[in-house]
Amino acid sequence: MRRTASLTVPIGPRDHVLGPDNAPVSMVEYGDFECPFCGQAYPIVAELIQRYGNRMRYAFRHFPLATAHPYAEKAAEAAEAAGAQGKFWEMHNILYTHQDALDPDSLTEYAATIDLDLPRFTRELAEGVHALRVREDFRSGIRSGVNGTPSFFINGFRHDGGYDYAELAAAIEAAGR
């Protein structure tokens, strides 16, 4: 029997979301800031968000493949630490455009460029304050059938096709009909 993998945790208040709650299409990405394929998808997703505007709601969840990508876990926590200061998306954008430099010093540098409270940011990273939150995303991903990064869920169902612009746009259009 063929199961279609579907999102077990719907978009909720804990998520980082762009776009209106009543948008006809919801897209959830499970991603890893150190994954080169996620990096390739990043500008495509940004373009889709721009194109669909109020017709699409987009949420990002963490899925760090930490054994393969040694900096992915702390990068995810850095995004959360920025989120705790109201700047999740600013950090998200920096991380995806600086995938070759995600070491601790670079993370602190990025925090400074977006004017975060640096002592708080570095303390939260050192103490792993946001590690549980990242793990929660990871677990919800596993239970939803995330099978690699990036994984996209469109209106709750895993998108098994490619993630170039045309394929994702076609899937979004189909879901919005």
Binding site: F37, T67, A68, I142, N147, G148, S151
Partner: peptide
């Protein structure tokens, strides 16, 4: 050829 490789994924999920 992808880092969404099945074995890499299972490696991450070993604790579970």
């Amino acid at each position: 050829p992808v880092c969404g490789d099945q074995m890499v994924l299972y490696n991450e999920i070993l604790p579970e």
